[in-house]
Design a binder for these strands. Structure first.
Lengths: 341, 341
DNA sequence: ATTCTAACCTTAACCGGTTAAGTTGTCCTC
DNA sequence: GAGGACAACTTAACCGGTTAAGGTTAGAAT
């Protein structure tokens, strides 16, 4: 088997404590001894056992990351940000996906709570805020991403989806559009609802038309986007622009438009959200709103690392000051939107 | 703090050993005692500490997964397969990305080797097979995915990229094409080289033309595909079909064709590899070769779990029998290929 | 009545580290 | 030259579980 700290200690003629001090760069060991121990560690190819270390020092060096779906580019990009920052801070990542399943979310939360990780980053939609809060009061602190409901309960980093909706919609109204369709994601999606809220706000403030006839659901999928757009475009007075709550649906809307003989952007302007890879590849390119996913991930890790270092709760200020960081989406202009003719 | 096994033992009036037996469903505990202990565990919201467990029982319940890039759909789909199967077998995933960086690959390997995981699944391209083998002889067994060089050294699961190249190319020759271009990925990519090899084999066996003029590099990116296709299509005798080593480049080739006023598939047939999401969304749909990524991932976990259960090495049969499982890619026919006119 | 067996449970040594407290030796100071 | 301060180690008690080996007890077999 691989050598233990005792083997090293013996070989170097010192106590395990001394070796431990060397490993952790702590004072109390002479220069000469330190060098000797290091040399022997190298020679014997010694690697401290992370489990034993963790057990004794009460840390695992791991951050748990819970996301619904590793296929969705939005989450993947957040994972990238998280990974980069976590790595920078010396943490390794424990990734679990939940597929939006409530039970699985609970299982994973349980797993993380049992102490396998030093902290948890959660993108969860089924767990209630109080469940989250309870979890965070256990062994590992929690930071929530993209969950407005959890904000206020646990430290959160969010994107302002209402502003996002306003930005997208205003961009279209400023191009002269007044009949603008909206394609929701799945029913009950908070992100979708907030984007819709921004859409309504912008319509009102710009004096553009608002009608339930302009709103459909597309389930966040390409096929759903096709369906929804077909419905919207076959209405007596069809919209001249469509704002879809994500890019897959926006691309679906684009297909539907082509299928109906409408040209994008001259007959129909389309705007999406997420800036997925395909958005840049289609012709015309899809104008979209990009959320700063990498920064979001990195920011969450930063907050979490602080919490791990100095566990909360010991302040009298009350729970009202749980951190919260809000990011804004950025408009990426490509070719899919044009002034109304 | 959260209760320990000693707290439970005390509350139940038994020894910690008894509690441990209950936790692990081992015999030697009476029905009544077992029930009492379970009840108390529930009441006190007890969760065994995974680190302590791992230390004592010499397992972590984690599988390390090393991939170059979490953005690449090919890897992501493998991760999905791995995650699902790992989860099924009670393992959790420790994900690390290397960005194809040799030093990072070594760091991660080191991390895994130090015993943080029970086994490792590697998609690595910079580590030498002997480094891999050495790693696998340490604390954690290793399974390699998609690394033909490692096969024979460590248990491997692969896709037959030569056959893939043959399949793609034969599909085109059978449609009557004789001048078929090939777009490589990055230089030195083994996958790309093997696909090329299959391409050459198919050309030869079908008596089609082979010329260095028909081969370009596209670096696996969309932009690179555009570039490469431009070059190929501006040659005196332009190819009537192009086989790109991945879908991004194939889509790039499609853009280049449109840009040059060529229509796909009537003027130019295009075939790619990977079946990325966008392949189904463009018009015409991209014909492509899909690797059974989920099965590959699941298969790797299966092999690894066996190795973890019964560590190798104890057989006299020699190292020649390291497992190896080869998968075949499947042709997905969409609209981007047509008979030569 | 004694021995054997089996079921049930406890003791205590580990797993491989960390770390507070204690020991030893050296040098400095007054 | 006694006392104190400091550097360099060591001792040993943990961290929170697992598990081999041993101890009781009750009931069955002899």
């Amino acid at each position: 088997m691989s050598p233990t700290i005792r083997d090293i200690a013996e070989a170097a003629g010192v106590s395990t404590a001394a070796v431990s001090y060397v490993i952790n760069d702590k004072p109390g060991v002479g220069e000469e001894t330190r060098r000797r121990v290091l040399k022997i560690m190298r020679e014997m190819n010694y690697r401290p056992n992370p489990q034993a270390r963790g057990l004794a020092a009460r840390r695992t060096g791991m951050i748990g990351l819970m996301i619904p779906d590793i296929t969705d580019p939005f989450y993947v990009n957040i994972v990238r940000g998280v990974e980069a920052k976590a790595n920078e801070l010396g943490y390794t990542l424990n990734l679990c996906t939940t597929h939006g399943d409530a039970e699985r979310e609970r299982d994973v939360a349980e797993l993380f709570a049992s102490g396998g990780v030093d902290g948890v980053i959660m993108m969860t939609y089924k767990l209630t805020p109080s469940e989250l809060k309870e979890l965070s009061e256990g062994r590992a602190p929690v930071v929530a991403i993209d969950n407005p409901e959890a904000a206020g309960w646990v430290p959160s980093v969010l994107v302002d989806n209402i502003a996002l909706g306003r930005t997208a919609t205003s961009y279209l109204t400023e191009l002269g559009h007044t009949r603008i369709g909206f394609i929701h994601g799945v029913e009950g999606s908070i992100a979708s609802m907030r984007r819709y809220e921004g859409y309504v706000q912008a319509l009102k403030s710009q004096g553009a038309e608002f009608s339930p006839e302009l709103v459909e659901y597309g389930g966040f999928t390409h096929a759903g986007g096709v369906e929804a757009a077909r419905v919207l475009l076959s209405r007596p007075q069809r919209p001249t622009a469509i704002f879809a709550a994500n890019d897959q649906m926006a691309l679906g809307a684009m297909s539907a438009a082509m299928e109906l003989g409408l040209s994008v952007p001259s007959d129909l302007s389309i705007i999406g959200v997420d800036d997925i890879e395909a958005a840049a590849l289609v012709v015309p390119g899809l104008t979209t709103l990009k959320q700063p996913t990498c920064e979001i991930g990195a920011c969450a890790v930063g907050i979490l690392a602080d919490l791990i270092r100095s566990p909360e709760g010991d302040d009298e200020a009350g729970a009202s000051d749980v951190g919260q960081r809000v990011f804004e989406a950025r408009l990426i202009v490509r070719g899919s939107c044009a002034p109304r003719q």
